[in-house]
């Protein structure tokens, strides 16, 4: 369990998916902020001391790739995990994120990859 509790921002247009993901992360010991679209996500990202971002790729308006590019431009040190239902995403999308995974790989894998981001950062 990481100490102190890290602040994670989850962005996803799917309300149920977002809610469940928030619960998983909170149980794993993270503090979680949520946004249902890219624009809101960027606002929260700018205002709060976000330590990691979990982004959904397919969203109305800005997609995950665009949101990641903006976040990178603003706070390049914050790690980003991109989730998608697509198996393969173009490289100009994935190059702005640290980890990319497909939905359905399961919660343990998700938590493991997210945790891995902090170990990368801390080292």
């Amino acid at each position: 369990m990481p100490e102190p509790r890290r602040l994670v921002l989850c962005v996803d247009d799917e309300a149920v998916g977002l809610l469940v993901r928030k619960m998983i992360l909170e149980r794993a010991g993270y503090k979680v902020l949520t946004a249902q679209d890219g624009a809101t996500g960027l606002e929260v990202f700018a205002e709060e001391p976000i330590e990691a971002v979990v982004l959904d790729y397919a969203m109305p308006g800005m997609d995950g790739g665009q949101v990641a590019a903006c976040m990178r431009a603003r706070k390049p040190q914050v790690p980003i995990l991109l989730l998608s239902a697509y198996l393969a995403l173009p490289s100009d999308v994935t190059r702005h994120v640290d980890v990319y995974m497909t939905k359905g790989e399961g919660a343990p894998m998700f938590l493991e990859k997210l945790n891995g981001l902090f170990s990368t950062v801390s080292t």
């Binding site: 799917e14 469940v20 998983i24 149980r27 397919a58 239902a85 697509y86 939905k103 359905g104 919660a107």
Partner: peptide, 22 residues
């Protein structure tokens, strides 16, 4: 449809995880 099916499946899978783990 991949999204349409994948998203709820992902949620269900996550919910099952929550129910099992704690």
């Amino acid at each position: 449809l991949a999204h349409e099916i994948h998203n709820p499946l992902d949620s269900v899978s996550n919910l099952l995880y929550l129910m099992q783990s704690d």
